Amino acid sequence: MRRYGDPRREGQSYRARPGVYAILPRDGRLLLTYQAGIHNEVQLPGGGVDPGESPVAALHREVYEETGWRVAGPRRLGAFRRFVFMPEYEIWAEKICHIYLARPVRELGPPPEPEHSVHWTTPDLALRSLANPGERSFLQRVL
């Protein structure tokens, strides 16, 4: 599996952290989330898979929490890994990032998760804005 970002640090222990993230096109634009606070970056909507939760159920939950939208037809595109420090959990994590393509079908309201805001953008701007190189790589392949 391809790695993006820093390599594993020698002597550092990492907690496995599977996550799901969505590329969400609609009417020539893409639905992204901006996470303020600790991260302060533009991201594909998504996040961690809770214990006992299926990846697709986690995808629906995370997209809703970060955007307020429901999605349909998720299709897994692949995965990549990252070795990162997660300050919100105070852990070093080996993030296994599963990327899906889905359709945003219904806005239910604003994002219920604090510090997230919705951003509809052009594909070009999305490629320039996404903070994570792994997310940019998958988006480039979709486009």
Rank of each mutant, 00 (worst) to 15 (best):
P45D: 11
F80S: 03
W92N: 14
D27R: 15
V142M: 08
M1P: 01
E107G: 15
G52T: 07
D124S: 15
G73Q: 13
N40W: 09
E90K: 12
G78Y: 05
A126I: 06
A126S: 11
I23R: 02
T121N: 04
P111E: 08
H39Q: 12
T121I: 04
R141N: 07
F83A: 03
N132Q: 04
W69Q: 03
P51I: 06
E53H: 15
V142L: 13
Y34M: 00
F80T: 01
E107N: 14
M1S: 12
G19I: 02
G52A: 13
I96S: 09
S117P: 01
L108I: 08
V56M: 09
V71I: 14
D50A: 15
P25L: 03
A57N: 10
I23A: 05
Q43G: 00
R128A: 15
L77I: 08
Y89N: 02
E66M: 13
E10V: 13
W92F: 15
S129V: 00
Y34V: 03
R26K: 15
L139M: 04
P18Q: 12
T33R: 14
A57E: 15
V71Q: 02
G5P: 03
L31M: 08
V56C: 04
Q12S: 12
W92E: 01
E66N: 08
R81H: 08
G11K: 04
Y21V: 03
W120T: 02
R17I: 00
G68H: 03
L125K: 14
R2L: 10
P74H: 13
K95Y: 00
H116M: 09
L24C: 13
R26E: 14
L77A: 10
R29M: 06
Y89A: 12
L59G: 06
W69S: 02
R75Y: 08
L31S: 03
F85M: 05
R26S: 14
L24K: 12
R2F: 10
Y34S: 00
R136A: 08
S54I: 12
A36D: 11
T122A: 11
Q140T: 05
E113N: 02
A79G: 10
L101P: 04
H98N: 14
L125E: 15
G48N: 11
H39G: 14
E115A: 13
R3E: 12
R70S: 07
I99R: 02
L30E: 02
H119D: 00
I91Q: 13
A22Y: 10
Q35E: 15
G47W: 06
Y14M: 07
E65P: 03
V42S: 07
Q35P: 04
L130D: 01
L32W: 10
P112D: 04
E115D: 14
V20N: 11
E53F: 15
